[in-house]
């Protein structure tokens, strides 16, 4: 298990682990307290459900992004990819409606289409990065533009809308759930738990960290670097598909403005959560905390008249940087 030790190298001393681990959680707790003090509805069931459900899209994607970044990669295309998959899914379901009729089977076909499209898109990114040996930044910058244009083209510059009847059938996937917990929250939780287990308990998770730490050493340790890398992008692609499955029933539409900047929000969440941007160390539960921090900032700013809405972006920026400082503060000493 030499790889596992490599991963924890930046956090050797136990005292340092504490502040690193606690940073994002402290930020989250502070935000929750601030929110609760500012508006009494903040902790209401409806608001908590809203925030968690809207975090699910970025959250599911960010879990996949954690693996990609841990393995030393990056994916800028996920926002465009989500828009493209949403558009494709809507087109497929609308196209099949006359032959299949409205019902659960056609929704399942749509979901399958989203997963397959995500898998293919992730494979394409991974293939170009590992087999063609092009930098991840460039490949995914390229595919980002491609998917964004494709969805605009599919929609003819407008908006793709799911058939009204289908929307009614599909709607519960976003708005309903079990025991008062809506589906997006359940799926997000399951993805996060599975991601955490894969990252910490499986060979795949340790390989990701080893490759991100030093891919040459990983290669000498007989890790199939190319295969693991490509798998991280495929995993991310499939998770983008899953996020899209949860996104489409919300408004039943996709356009060129769908998923704009999701990639940066996902990357920001991953980094706030304690994963290192240069790779080598990843923390899935930290990513989940990062996603919640980002959603809460927007929510609190909407619920209060604290600052001019023009400054929302600035507040978000400050809190992102603060969260990372809190997390890395002690590291500079060591």
């Amino acid at each position: 298990m030499s790889t596992a030790e490599t991963t924890s190298a930046p956090t050797q001393a136990p005292r340092k682990i504490n502040i690193q681990v606690l940073g994002p959680i402290i930020a989250l707790v502070v935000l929750v307290i601030v929110g609760a003090l500012m508006n009494s509805n903040f902790l209401s069931y409806a608001n908590v459900t809203n925030v968690l459900a809207r975090s699910a899209f970025i959250g599911i994607i960010a879990v996949g992004m954690t693996f990609v970044i841990t393995a030393g990669g990056l994916d800028l295309s996920v926002g465009s990819m989500a828009a493209f998959i949403a558009g494709l899914m809507i087109l497929v379901m609308n196209y099949l409606l006359p032959s299949m009729g409205n019902g659960v089977p056609i929704i399942l076909v749509g979901m399958l289409a989203a997963l397959v499209a995500g898998l293919a898109a992730g494979f394409l990114n991974g293939f170009l990065i590992t087999n063609m040996r092009i930098e991840a930044f460039i490949v995914t910058l390229g595919t980002m533009g491609i998917y964004r244009s494709l969805v605009t083209w599919l929609a003819d510059g407008g908006t793709l809308s799911l058939d009204f009847g289908l929307r009614q059938t599909y709607r519960p996937v976003y708005y309903e759930g079990i025991l008062g917990i809506s589906w997006p929250i359940i799926i997000f939780a399951l993805v996060a738990i599975a991601g955490e287990i894969v990252m910490r308990k499986t060979a795949f998770g340790r390989y990701c960290a080893a490759i991100g730490s030093n891919d040459q050493v990983a290669r000498y340790s007989s890790v199939d670097v190319g295969r693991v890398r490509i798998l991280t992008y495929i995993l991310l692609g499939v998770l983008v598909g899953v996020a899209t499955i949860m996104y489409v029933p919300r408004l039943g539409s996709a356009s060129s403005s769908t998923g704009v900047l999701w990639e940066l929000e996902a990357i920001a969440a991953v980094i706030i959560g304690g994963t290192m941007l240069k790779g080598g160390f990843g923390r899935v539960w930290g990513t989940v905390v990062g996603v919640l921090i980002l959603s809460l900032i927007g929510n609190i700013l909407n619920l209060t008249d604290f600052v001019s809405p023009y400054l929302n972006g600035a507040i978000q920026g400050v809190i992102i940087i603060l969260a990372v400082i809190l997390q890395r503060g002690r590291k500079a000493e060591g």
Partner: peptide, 21 residues
């Protein structure tokens, strides 16, 4: 008044928060 940026998703989020508030 809050900016929904002529965008469906943004205005969905803003409206949810208005309804809570």
């Amino acid at each position: 008044m809050e900016h929904g940026n002529w965008n469906r998703d943004d205005s969905f989020t803003v409206m949810q928060d208005f309804l809570s508030k």
